[in-house]
């Protein structure tokens, strides 16, 4: 370790930055897609309509019983088969993350919806709002307000999980770091740097969550 050379980072910065952008984009889009699909699943489970509730519960339990890496593989091979044409590593990975995260988000959102007092639903019903109007205007806004910290926390976990996309040969930040590490022969420098970057981003995220929680209890 006598020749610890940090210039390798500087020299490859544009390449690493491209990788980080891919990781961040994938995280952001998967969080948005996961929350939308997860909300749908949560509403299905709570709808009281048996076939819908069972389908959603089955989906959530299936996805949660399978490793993420397997889901990423599935969609990489299955989506082109289903569509009849290749869609590329990024979109197949994005679909995999959305489908996977939706299962986790739906459980969070379900708990959030159930945390809204039953009286609020009664108040909506009593003014003649329909089931969907009550969800849309009364329940979900309150549920999401309660859930934001935990949704962000799940987003941080998702950001770390994006490092798995190397299996479909996407060049995320982790993969980019590995490539630099191997081609330049600077394993120690690059892996420490990669760890620092992940740590900084995730730690900043946690601090943000803590502030949100404080703001909520204040």
């Amino acid at each position: 370790m006598g020749d610890f050379d940090l210039s390798v980072i500087w020299n490859n910065l544009p390449f690493l930055w491209q990788g980080l952008q891919l990781s961040l984009w994938l995280t952001l889009l998967a969080v948005i897609g996961g929350i939308i699909l997860g909300t749908g699943l949560a509403l299905m489970r709570l709808s009281g309509i048996m076939p819908l509730a069972l389908a959603a519960a089955g989906y959530v339990n299936l996805i949660r019983s399978v490793p993420l890496i397997l889901v990423i593989f599935w969609f990489y091979f299955l989506v082109p088969l289903a569509l009849g044409r290749p869609i590329g590593g990024f979109y197949s990975a994005l679909i995999a993350f959305v489908m996977f995260e939706a299962a986790y988000y739906s459980e969070i959102i379900r708990a959030g919806i159930q945390s809204v007092r039953k009286g609020q639903v009664h108040a909506g019903q009593a003014t003649g709002l329909s089931y969907w109007q009550i969800q849309r205007y009364v329940v979900l806004p309150q549920a999401f307000r309660n859930m934001i910290p935990i949704l962000v926390t799940q987003g941080i976990i998702l950001f770390q999980d994006t490092s798995l996309v190397f299996v479909v040969s996407l060049r995320d930040f982790m993969t980019a770091s590995s490539i630099v590490a191997r081609t330049e022969g600077r394993l120690a420098e690059m892996y420490i740097f990669a760890a620092l970057v992940y740590f900084t981003i995730c730690f900043a995220g946690s601090l943000f969550v803590r502030r949100l929680q404080k703001a909520k209890t204040a």
């Binding site: 009664h122 108040a123 003649g128 329909s130 806004p141 309150q142």
Partner: peptide
């Protein structure tokens, strides 16, 4: 029921105003 309820006002013990 939805239509019927829109014609009957209701006031609750715990107000149940929408807090947001």
């Amino acid at each position: 029921l939805t239509r019927l309820r829109s014609r009957i006002g209701m006031v609750f013990q715990h107000f149940e105003l929408y807090p947001h």
